[in-house]
Structure formats: structure tokens, C-alpha cells
Write a protein that binds this DNA or RNA. Structure first.
Lengths: 204, 204
DNA sequence: CTTGCGCTATACCAACCAGTCAACTAAGTT
DNA sequence: AACTTAGTTGACTGGTTGGTATAGCGCAAG
């Protein structure tokens, strides 16, 4: 396997960051190249088009996140704790972005997906795929919560989708309000949706 | 009061439609003018900037929707019925757009707000305002549901925000998946969030 | 040494962009 | 008739866009 070139790596990272911070439409290929310290020629050697870069950047960003998710949703962790940790991860991520950019950025897949879903089918599909992957984790969590008797064992698949939808809404709303408030109450909302009584988490 | 010029009216309608169908960034002032049958000069006579037009179009769109909302959320209507009718309105609206554009468009305020919230503060504020207005209706509904004993009378304001957030998420997810599925289960999710038992609505 | 190849560098393109401008029309108002 | 105001027109500007063309680079295999 050839080790992906440094330029390509830098372009992927820079692109994700810039598009996340503003939007796909308002960031030009030129902008990305300048910030990444790469020439335009190299850009079009590495990627067919701007749209292609976005898709690749999505994948890259996911690959970066996956290990953390695998750890949080490990079957070894009790399901209530998984929920705690997952919500905390989202809070931490958003806080970090808020600290470094001075504004709420929300979920990059949803933001960009929403911006382009009606115009660029490849990007829409990739965003949908990312959303699906997140759903898999939530499904396993909800299923285990049901098995452990914390929630009613109705249609757990449907319930998981509702939880994902709610999370999407929270991140969206947070971006719109440019405030952490909604994100901070994420867990509370999820628990209400799940029909879980508010519980006090033992100190870690 | 001077009766707003025909050009201005046409521009507002056309802009809303085009931006909703694709996105703010991918629709040019020229595009809007051509489709509206208005000259560029007239555009800049009527609006200071593209961003200004977007804000005005938001307001216009709201004004168009408000009478329907007032009717649905009328205190004369029993609260459970209000919820039914509101969900049905959302379904109908989305279905209509899907029929005429061949794709799911979601909520225009949220979509555009999300696209531009990190770049154009005036647009973000307007989108937030629209979201707030929707919240007012939901608050009154949730309050009345609590008074009528359908739900626990905890923090109804917080609960209303969660419902709004969930709706935002549903419309977002529907756009991303380009499917009506999530929208069709909107009511079910809201009821779960509210802690309401699934109820059978009497035929209208 | 030299051939080939992945990558870089830069000049270039036609299309497009938001916004400007000065000249113009039409309809009051005094 | 003289003046004001509201709206219209379309050419124009200066800059940007995504994408291309092509020449050159360094390096590894033959």
C-alpha cells in the first residue's frame, strides 16, 4: 500500500476544518489550497473535484472519530454509562469547537449534508451513510438498555432512530442559536425520549 | 401605506422558493432576477443586498404561514387535536414540496439558518427568531396538555423546547435521507417525548 | 545514466459573482 | 410647466470561481 501523500492528508484535514467552520459553498478550492499550503495542481491531482474532496473528507473525519465511539459504546461498559459518556463526548466536542472558533459549529455531516442534499447526490449519500453509522451505535445502546430492563422493550429500532433524530435536532438548534444550552441538556432529552427516569451518575 | 411594488413581491416569493429548493450559496442574485422577471437594477433598488433579501423573504414566508398556525393552535381546539393537526400540516407541507420538486426540502429557516449561521449574523438571528416563534405555539400546546392532565406538569417550557428540537431534527433528517419516512412518524416521536400514550384520533 | 512516474508548480481560462451606475420613465404635487 | 419621487433598465466593474494545461521536479527501478 502506498502511503497517502502528505498533501492529500493536509488537504483532507484543512478542508474538513474550513467547511465545518463556514460552509461548503463559501469555501473555495483556492482557499483550501492556500491554508493547506498546497498548490492547485496538487489538489486536482489528488481529487477529481471539490465535491469529491468533501466526500473524502467526510470519510476521513469519521475514521478519526470511530475509535472513540468504539470505546464509548463497548459492550463491556454498562449501557447507562455508555449513554452518559456519549453525551459527554458530544458536549466536549462542541465545547472545544466553540472555544477555538468562537461559535457553535454543530454536526459537520448534518450541516453540509443539509446544505447540499438537494444539489449533490454523492454528498447527500455520504452524509446519510455517516448518519447511519451513528445510528448503529445508538441501536446497540437502546437494545442493551431494553435487555437490561431500563426501558420498555418495544420497537427498539424505531426508538433508536428517534434518539438519533433528536440528537440531530439538538446540534442543529445549538448551531442556530449559537449556544451550548441545548447541548448541555442533551442527555435529559434523550432520557425523556427513552422513558428513562433521570438518574444520578456515580462519580467516575 | 404604500402598496409594496410588484417587483419586490415577486422577488421575495421567487427567492424563497429558489433558496429553499437548493441553497443560499448556490442561487445567485442573477438567477433570482431572471426567474422573477425583474432586472438587476430593480433588485438593488428594492434590497440593499442578497443577505437582506433573504431576511425579508424569511419574514414574508412566515407571514404567509402564520394564519394557518393561528388556526391550528387556536385555544378553542382541544390540545390533542392541535397536536394532530400540527403534525398533519407539517406532513402535508413536506409532501407537497416533495411532489413539486421531486425531493425533500425540510424546513427552510433551519436549512438556510444552518448554512449561514456561522457566516451571516443577521440571517442567523432571523432564523433563530423564526424558531422562537414556532416555539411559542408549541409552548402553549404543551402547557394546555399539562393543564388538561394529559402530561405531567413538570417544566413545560423545557419540554416545549425539546419538542421543537425534535421537530427540527425530523425535518433535517428527512431532508438528509430524502424521504418522508421520518416525517410520517413525527407525531409518534413527539408523543413519546411528551410521555403521552399513543391515542387513536376520532375520524374528522 | 536514463527512462518512467507520482507529484508539484504556475499560468491560464471561460464563466460567473455581487454589487454599481447613470440614464430613463411614469405618476403625482405644487 | 417645473419639480419630486418611485421605480426601471441593462451595461459595466473588479474580482472570484472550479477546473485545465503543461512544464518541471525528485526519486526509484532497470
Amino acid at each position: 500500500m502506498k502511503p497517502e501523500s502528505e498533501s492529500k492528508r493536509k488537504l483532507l484535514e484543512t478542508a474538513m476544518e474550513m467547511i465545518w467552520e463556514s460552509s461548503y459553498g463559501s469555501v473555495s478550492v483556492e482557499d483550501i489550497c492556500v491554508r493547506a499550503g498546497v498548490n492547485k495542481g496538487s489538489f486536482y491531482h489528488a481529487f477529481k473535484s471539490k465535491s469529491d474532496l468533501a466526500v473524502a473528507a467526510f470519510e476521513r473525519h469519521w475514521e478519526h472519530k470511530q475509535p472513540k465511539l468504539d470505546k464509548i459504546f463497548s459492550p463491556l461498559v454498562p449501557p447507562l454509562e455508555r449513554l452518559d459518556n456519549y453525551c459527554q463526548m458530544i458536549i466536549d466536542d462542541q465545547k472545544e469547537k466553540y472555544a477555538s472558533f468562537g461559535k457553535m459549529l454543530g454536526c459537520p455531516f448534518c450541516s453540509v449534508g443539509c446544505e447540499l442534499s438537494t444539489q449533490d447526490e454523492k454528498i447527500r449519500l455520504k452524509a446519510e451513510e455517516m448518519s447511519q453509522r451513528r445510528l448503529r451505535y445508538i441501536e446497540s445502546l437502546v437494545r442493551d438498555l431494553a435487555v437490561a430492563g431500563y426501558i420498555e422493550a418495544g420497537d427498539t429500532m424505531e426508538l433508536a432512530q428517534e434518539v438519533r433524530t433528536y440528537i440531530t435536532g439538538v446540534l442543529m438548534q445549538a448551531k442556530l442559536e449559537n449556544s451550548m444550552r441545548r447541548v448541555e441538556r442533551l442527555q435529559q432529552g434523550i432520557m425523556r425520549l427513552l422513558g428513562l427516569k433521570q438518574h444520578v451518575t456515580a462519580a467516575a
